[in-house]
Design a protein around this nucleic acid. Structure first.
Lengths: 209, 209
DNA sequence: GCTTTTGCACTGACCAGTCAGTTCAAAACG
DNA sequence: CGTTTTGAACTGACTGGTCAGTGCAAAAGC
């Protein structure tokens, strides 16, 4: 039951090995953090020798950085697809946001370990992969910001809306709700979680119905 | 410019030393993570000898655990105070939530390093201080859940509202928005950020004004 | 066909350095 | 005086990274 892979397939022998290393690294680092995870552990979990890790990646940090880039790439693609699909169907901005929330939840359900690891590293400072992290973060958040901005232009969202901040808040809402869901109420269904967040987004919280 | 202390005052000599150690540890661990931070570093930053660390704390982990407990204690107290004050003034549930959002922002502005560190550790599994973390998390979230539950009882919030999930989502909204504020737009004022989040909470996002 | 060569992917023992934690006599403090 | 701190030396376990060597499938040679 590999629930935390984050890389696509590959055909050559080498690609398969890298894939195994990604899978091993992502779960271990999510649980223990980067520094507490040893290269020996990663190798052992992946079922390869330690030397193989260094044959495939220049260093422990590089392995981690590539993992990061790949994972966020998947998320960004998924968000963008959700947004574009809704736009093509002539949906309102709120529907696009809702659709992106779902895409976010699907991603987190599929790659919980990656999500953990990402959250744990995102706001750290003075780390080797700081710049990588900034870049990939901006890619992902930009998708949300884009949808918000278009909503404002089309008059569907208030023009007083603070785009960057609201984007961050929305991402945070989904992220934390989903991580809590996974950690503390894993038995609940994605639809269940999605509808609760959807309600919150659409301001249907206050006032009895 | 100590922006990240998280402990209250103390009177004895020993308490002062512990305070210095907390301050040093919180910033270092926030930046580098627990494992990457060495006891020598903490001692040096605090301006004490390494032996002093072990005179005051049984181990590196214990130092960290006490730091965690203390920090979340401050947050919980602050949230509770905000909620109770609003309740006493006869405010609506939304006002109490709004007041708690502000309290959260104030806390994060004052103790950014602690917040970083907390977020980075919260969803980790299999760590020594796992249980400590669960307990303090529950204390803090419970305050938000309490306010939500009372709002539902009083009919001010929809009775279809998913209390635990919404609480997590709200916490996440504030947390991520605030960390982004601190990391990427530190020049903005707290009021500014607060009003943006306030608008989001009250569902005044969609629809032109 | 068959041997020989090539070179990619992998191996795992090994090394030099690091770190948590210990020890303790002496100094500083209050 | 009793408590707290100092500071430096020490230990033993662990870690990132290295490197000489192995295995093997496909190409080259004959």
């Amino acid at each position: 039951m590999e629930s935390s892979t984050v890389t696509g397939g590959g055909s050559s022998r080498r690609a398969a090995t890298r894939q195994k290393l990604y899978e091993a690294a992502v779960t271990l680092i999510a649980e223990q953090g980067f520094s507490a995870t040893t290269v020996d552990e990663i190798a052992e979990r992946a079922g390869v020798a330690k030397g193989t890790v260094y044959y495939n990646f220049a260093s422990k940090s590089v392995l981690f950085e590539e993992l990061l880039r790949h994972g966020v790439g998947l998320l960004t693609a998924s968000l963008r697809e959700a947004a574009e699909k809704t736009a093509k169907d002539g949906g309102r901005t709120v529907d696009a946001l809702d659709s992106m929330i779902r895409a976010g939840l699907v991603f987190i359900e599929r790659y919980p370990a990656f999500t953990q690891l990402y959250v744990a590293e995102l706001w750290r400072t003075n780390r080797a992969w700081q710049s990588t992290l900034m870049v990939v973060r901006q890619e992902a958040v930009a998708v949300v910001e884009g949808v918000l901005r278009e909503g404002v232009e089309r008059g569907e969202l208030s023009d007083e809306l603070d785009v960057p901040l609201t984007a961050a808040a929305l991402v945070g809402m989904v992220l934390v709700a989903a991580l809590d869901w996974q950690s503390f109420q894993p038995e609940r269904s994605l639809d269940d979680v999605h509808s609760a967040l959807s309600r919150l987004l659409q301001g249907r919280v206050s006032g009895r119905r």
